[in-house]
Structures are given as C-alpha cells and as structure tokens.
Write a protein that binds this DNA or RNA. Structure first.
Length: 569
RNA sequence: GCCGCCAUAGUUCAAUGGAUAGAACGAGGAGUUCCUAAUUCCUAAAUGCAGGUUCGAUUCCUGCUGGUGGCACCA
C-alpha cells in the first residue's frame, strides 16, 4: 500500500538493525535528496556515543544486502541521514491506484464511526453578512469535507443569532427610517444594514437612545408589543432568505439550523438552577460567572443582565446541551472568529461544571479576522464589504479576463462564478486558519501564481489534453515506459493521502492548498516540457495516464477545499 | 493593569526539532511553427532583539520590543 510505505520502511530498518523504532522516516524537504529519509543514525549515534555520519555509512552497508522491493537505493548524507530512493515502479503503482480509486483516492478511515458536528457561519440576523462571515463559512465547509474524507459522519450546523441587543438596534433603526419597505431581497437587506448601523451609531454616544433601545430589547424579548413583533419577524425573514442565497452560491448545505431565540428560556432556567448551586453569583443586579475562580487565566463574565435577559454566554450553554440532545456527537467543532477565543474558554469552563461530558467534547477553532488594508470592518461604522458585493465584484473581474474566449455568454457566466468563488475561497484557505487575513482587493484576489484560478487552470489544461487524446488514442494503458525517469508530478501524486491525513489531524485545510499549488506547478512544468499527446512517442500513453491521475487528484483536492472546477476557462 | 494570539524576502503567505528556510506578487532577464501564455524557465531578496534547552531551534522555554484580540450587562 502506498500510504504505508514510511511505516513499512521504518519497521524494516528497526528489524534489520535490531534497534528500537524511536526514529522517523520522513520526506526530505527537497526531493533531490531522496524520496524518504531516516534519522536513525542521528538518534542511535547519540545513544551510543558514536559519530552519526559514520554510523549512517555503517547502516547503509548493513541494509544494502537485503533491500525491500520498493527501494531503488540508499545513501548516507548530511549530518547522518539515510536517504532512500524508491523505484519508478513504486510511483507508477501510485498512478495506477489513483486511476483505480478515482475520486476516492486519498481518503482514509481514521475517523470511521465518529459522529462529528461542525458549527460554522454563526450569523446574526438583522446585521449585514460581511466578508468576515464568508471566512467562517469557507473554513467550516472545507473542514467538514476533510473530516468526511477521514470517514467520519459529519453534520453541518448553523447557529443563528436571532435574539439579543443587535436586534433591538436594528429594529430601532427601521422605525426611524420609516418601517418596512418593498423591493428586491438585496434592497431590503441593504436597508436593514443601514438601519442597524443607524441604531448602533446613535446609541453609541447618546444615553437617551441607548435607553430606548434597551427598552425595545426587553419588549422584543417578551414579545409584548405586536408592532415590534411584526418588524422583527419581517427583518428576520429577510436576513434568513438573504443568507440562504449566499450559502447556495458558496456551496454549503446545513443539516441543522439552530436559533438563539429557541433556547433563551432554557438558558434562564439553567442559570437560575446553578445560581442555587453557587456556580453563578449575583453582582450589581446581574448574574455572573467568576471564571478566575476556576482558572487564573479566565475572567468574569455576565450571563444574565440586570434586566433579566440571557446573554450570549447563557444561551450558548443551553445551545450546547440541546445540540447534544439532538445529535449525540463524539466531537462538536465550533468555528468562530478569534475575538471570541477568550470568551469561549470561560463559557466552556462554566459548561464543564454543568455538564462535563458535553463540555469536553466541544472544540473551538478560531479563524482570525479579515481586515481591510485601511483597518477593521465594522457593521456599526457601516464600512463593511458584504459577501454578496465581493462575489459580484470578483465575478466582474473574471468576466473581463475572459472577453476573448470563444464561449457562449451563458457558459461564460457559469465559469466566472466558479472561478470567482474559487479565487475567494482559495485566498482564505491558503493560509493557516488562526491568522488574520489582510484583504487587499487588487492584490489578494490575484488570478495568477498562488491562487485558486491557477489550480483550476491547471485542471482545465489537463482535461483539454485528455479530450484530444480520446480522439487519437482511445486505449490508454498505464504501463511505465522503459527507461522512464520519474517526474516530480508522480512523486507528489503518491503523497496525496498523507496530505489529507495531516490536514484532518491538524484541522488545517491550508496543507491541502499548499500541496495543490505544488502539484499544479509540477503538472504545468510537465506540460510545458513535453508534448503529452504524440503518437510517435512511446511514452505518450503513460504521460496521458499521469495527466488523468493529476486531474483526478486536483479535482478531489479542490473539492476538499469546497472549490469547484470548470470544464474550460 | 491582567490574560490570550502573532512577529519569516519590498509585500502576502509556507516550512511534521533536522541537511542549502519554500512559494507567489512585485523587480530584472528569457521562452510559443507544439495539447488554452490565467503558463513555463533563470536571477536578486528574509527567520524582530537577548538569553536558555538540544548533537541540531523558524519550530520548545524565559525576558524584551512591536502589533493585535479579550477583560460586566454586545454577539
């Protein structure tokens, strides 16, 4: 098996040399050094007090007598590494395996039998969905796909904020602007965004407005004012419809939708129950949790306000319990922006006192902020770029790039959407999740180099070659030609399963992105250096097989990032 | 003030404690009678500072500097 070669070689070395297996067999950073490298001599040299380089020479000699069938040759190098070169047939077998498994290639069973629920795109109704929310959605979707590829049963979960002060701010704004309006979904969404900014801004330095909004908040919570109920219901539905159009465009389908408003009563009940048990305390009229009593690194947070309204912290606890009752998960992953990291630790610590079984199954992943070159976006200040606007603008940029392509306008539009969303998703997934993304419209969404379109383009080129070959050479055989020199592309194809495993283990989609860039680069070089479809060339069938295998892996890899591939572009 | 996260070429990002720190953009140069030039090839260019652990540190630990997020009634 391809994916066990490292383990196999490691065991073999340990056995042949009669030593413990506490060394590593890994890929060297640079391929010229070998396909795999073992640091046995470094580890053993230290144990035995011998010169590692000499020991490596000794080991290579000892091992050379009975090499494994996959191994071409070995040599000692550097500080005392043993570099291992594999046979061309090994890589040809990998290509075979790709063809055989197709789009299943690279998947594993590491999480087989696990029930995992992933919560992402935590949006608030009546607030604009800006590109920061896009980030959570893109990351959550990719993580879901990677975890599915590891054999787990995955549920996608959307928890939406349809209760709380932001609602009152927006409703206040809508009242000031003159109530409900008629129009398209986009117009209504924009209107509500304005209303929210108005409410939030006006209350910022005006105590009177602040009080008005507090009063509205209480009335909305108690559903005591029919006029407010209607405005709220209207705005909520507009927001939900708007979100749905974006989810569809981005390619996310949720299994569950939970709402804060459904859990407020339960939240109050739990808090009052645990006030009696001494977990929560009264302070200044509010109910608080003193996190620092459990861990000096935590802090105090309000769970229920003076007015008796549950805060996010209380609702989240009730939500976690309800989520577990709905779906008995082994792990619940919650993806949010990193500004909530500290909050989450406190909330989770409180939950641990209330229901440790659930608390310990919840894992928080935070994803950094998406910043504009000139600072942070804020729906309060109104300087937001909404997800919708971003996608539209990028689509226009793609359309411009395609002016001279011979395609029908309809296909062009389809392709533009696939490429635009691919570009946006890639620019989010190319880097480690935790860090902020500095978003520069002109630079971040490049269509060349380290970009989504670069990957899609490489795929399209491969498909184009294959289409041509079907006319000329209908019987592609995967036999390695004589005197074939293994190319980088083959070596990379064989590594795909490892990459998926690592991305899953570390919850890190960017490993896949980095790998795909390398893979696309190696294919592009391969493509540039040699004609693939060439009847006179005996290596052509194998080159075609490589091209097909590349296409399969690229498509699968992009699929794990949630990026679609066009047929042409 | 307390707590968390971050610091790598001019810029935006990579690098499972290992061997010469890898890309892309930008800069300079080259390539198409050939399967889509949204491409390929070549050149220059980086680990914030000071210690420590280790055979070996971008990676682990401590301090400093700089940035950023959180810390009572937003989510």
């Amino acid at each position: 098996m391809q994916d066990n070669i490292q383990e196999k070689i490691k065991k073999w070395i340990a056995k042949e040399l009669s030593i413990e297996g506490d060394f590593a067999v890994e890929h060297p950073k640079e391929m010229e050094r070998g396909d795999l490298a073992a640091n046995v001599a470094l580890i053993e040299g230290k144990k035995q007090g011998k010169n590692p380089r000499e020991l490596a020479n000794e080991y290579v000699e000892k091992l050379a007598g009975c090499v494994l069938p996959e191994i071409e040759h070995m040599e000692s190098a550097g500080a005392g590494f043993i570099n291992i070169f594999l046979k061309p047939e090994f890589f040809a077998d990998a290509v075979n395996e790709v063809m055989k498994d197709g789009e299943k290639f690279g998947e594993n069973a590491d999480l087989k039998g696990q029930k995992i629920i992933i919560e992402y795109t935590v949006c608030n109704v009546l607030k604009p969905m800006h590109i920061g929310h896009l980030m959570g959605n893109v990351i959550g979707e990719s993580l879901s796909r990677i975890i599915e590829a590891e054999g787990a049963e995955v549920k996608r979960n959307n928890y939406q904020g349809d209760s709380g002060l932001h609602i009152a701010r927006a409703v206040w704004g809508i009242q000031k602007l003159g109530g409900k309006i008629e129009g398209t979904l986009s117009e209504k969404t924009e209107y509500i965004g304005k209303a929210y900014a108005l409410g939030a801004n006006s209350s910022e330095d005006d105590e009177k407005v602040k009080e008005e909004i507090q009063k509205l908040n209480k009335e909305i919570f108690e559903k005591s004012n029919p006029e407010l109920n209607e405005l709220y219901a209207w705005g909520r539905q507009v927001s939900l419809d708007h979100f749905e159009t974006l989810y569809k465009k981005l390619g996310t389908q949720f299994d569950y939708y939970f709402f804060e408003s459904e859990v407020t009563d339960e939240a109050l009940k739990i808090v009052s129950e645990f006030v009696k048990k001494g977990l929560f305390e009264e302070s200044d009229g509010a109910v608080v949790f003193h996190g620092e009593k459990f861990d000096p690194k935590l802090h105090t947070r309000v769970f229920v306000t003076k007015q008796g309204l549950p805060m996010y912290e209380a609702k989240d606890i009730a939500h976690a319990i309800r989520k577990y009752e709905t779906y008995k998960f082994d792990t619940s992953i919650v993806v949010t922006a990193s500004e909530q990291s500290e909050y989450f630790k406190v909330m989770l610590r409180a939950l641990q006192e209330i229901n440790p079984e659930i608390a310990l199954k919840i894992k928080h992943i935070s994803h950094g902020l998406l910043k504009l070159v000139d600072g942070k976006m804020s729906s309060r200040k109104g300087n937001v770029i909404t997800g919708e606007v971003l996608i539209d603008d990028v689509e226009k940029m793609v359309m411009e790039k395609m002016v001279d392509r011979e395609m029908s306008d309809e296909i062009k539009k389809e392709v533009a959407e696939i490429v635009a969303i691919g570009a946006i998703k890639y620019s989010i997934l190319r880097q480690a999740i935790g860090g902020d993304i500095i978003f520069d419209f002109d630079k971040s969404l490049s269509f060349e180099g380290d970009s989504g379109p670069y990957l899609q383009y490489a795929f399209v080129r491969a498909q184009s070659v294959l289409k041509k070959s079907k006319l000329q050479n209908p019987n592609v055989k995967i036999e390695i030609p004589e005197n074939w020199e293994t190319v980088v592309l083959e070596k990379l194809l064989a590594r795909f399963p490892e990459v998926i495993a690592r991305a899953g283990r570390e919850y890190a989609p960017h490993h896949i992105a980095t790998y795909l860039i390398e893979l696309a680069g190696s294919f592009n070089s391969f493509y540039a250096g040699h004609k693939i479809v060439d009847e006179a060339d005996p290596t052509s069938p194998y080159r075609l097989a490589l091209t097909e295998a590349f296409g399969l892996v690229m498509k699968k890899g992009l699929d794990l990032l949630g990026i679609k591939v066009p047929e042409e572009m």
